[in-house]
């Protein structure tokens, strides 16, 4: 009887130890994963892409009811604004017609001048329109998952909204891609001030506004200046709009993106054929077939 009791106590002790040990092991796994992730290995990249592909269809299904609620809300909100919008759009249309005429004249002038200077035109861009199915933006990361279907997408491709650059493709799965937003701490884009051509790096810090860093000490940057891509490093072509400067202080220059990153429904993933310094070996597996 005594022996049986001691055996029982023994087993419960082992079970308790195993339970405690499991917790330590799982904590260790979490830390090891973080360390491996820091080294940016191909295995993690590929595993993460496969996992994104596995779980994204579930989010895709969940999007449907959420979109219905959002659309219903938008419908009633829009009803109130239709009249005011109509007046504003008529005025805007009149102004845009004038701008369009001017644009056509400039385009012809540009073509003639390019011919005179023997200017080499940049490569034609191919793009894929992707539907955003998941977004996340908190203190730890800013990214989104988009559905690309059977289209071919490469790691490093630029993500554009109708207003400008929003990020770049980070992980590529079979049908889904993960995009790092320009506000993410891992995002570093070579940019310049459109007017003064001062170059720098637009760096995300996981807040809602990226910062302009590495600009020359004697450079003058003013509030309201437009920031565009500089084309340095050859990943992003020059001149793509990103945002405008909203704050210049001694320690930081804050840039507000043109696109509202939290309200993106569709984005364009553009391939300018510029390989740059990025390793573009990862791409949608369809091409291998």
């Amino acid at each position: 009887m005594k022996r049986r009791r001691s055996l029982f106590l023994h087993l419960s002790h082992i079970r308790l130890l195993a339970k405690k040990f499991a917790l330590v092991i799982l904590f260790l796994i979490a830390f090891v994963l973080m360390l491996i992730n820091k080294t940016d290995t191909v295995i993690i990249d590929k595993t993460s892409s496969v996992a994104t592909d596995m779980f994204s269809p579930l989010i895709d299904i969940l999007v449907v009811p959420a979109k219905m609620v959002a659309k219903g809300y938008d419908y009633f909100k829009d009803l109130k604004q239709i009249h005011q919008d109509n007046i504003r759009l008529r005025e805007e249309n009149r102004r845009l017609n004038m701008v369009y005429d001017r644009f056509r004249a400039l385009e012809i002038e540009n073509k003639l001048l390019s011919k005179l200077l023997n200017y080499v035109t940049p490569p034609r861009a191919d793009f894929v329109t992707a539907r955003v199915i998941a977004e996340e933006g908190d203190a730890f990361s800013h990214s989104m998952i988009a559905y690309v279907g059977d289209e071919k997408v490469k790691k490093g491709q630029i993500a554009l909204s109708d207003r400008g650059v929003v990020g770049r493709v980070d992980k590529v799965g079979q049908r889904y891609v993960k995009i790092i937003l320009i506000t993410d701490i891992n995002s570093k884009i070579p940019v310049m001030v459109e007017k003064s051509r001062v170059r720098g790096i637009l760096s995300g810090d996981n807040s809602t506004m990226p910062k302009l860093i590495f600009i020359p000490l004697d450079a003058t940057v003013n509030v309201g200046d437009r920031i565009v891509t500089s084309g340095v490093a050859g990943v992003f072509p020059a001149g793509l709009p990103i945002g405008k400067v909203i704050k210049v202080s001694k320690n930081e220059i804050v840039v507000k993106p043109f696109s509202s990153l939290e309200q993106l429904e569709y984005i364009r993933l553009v391939d300018y054929g510029l390989e740059g310094i990025l390793d573009n070996t990862q791409e949608t597996p369809q091409e291998d077939k």
């Binding site: 799982l26 796994i29 979490a30 973080m34 998941a134 996340e136 990361s141």
Partner: peptide, 15 residues
């Protein structure tokens, strides 16, 4: 998997 925060950081938080 869903977020792009460092792999393992969410596991750490929940543990």
């Amino acid at each position: 998997v869903v977020t792009s925060s460092p792999l393992g950081s969410n596991i750490f938080e929940l543990l």
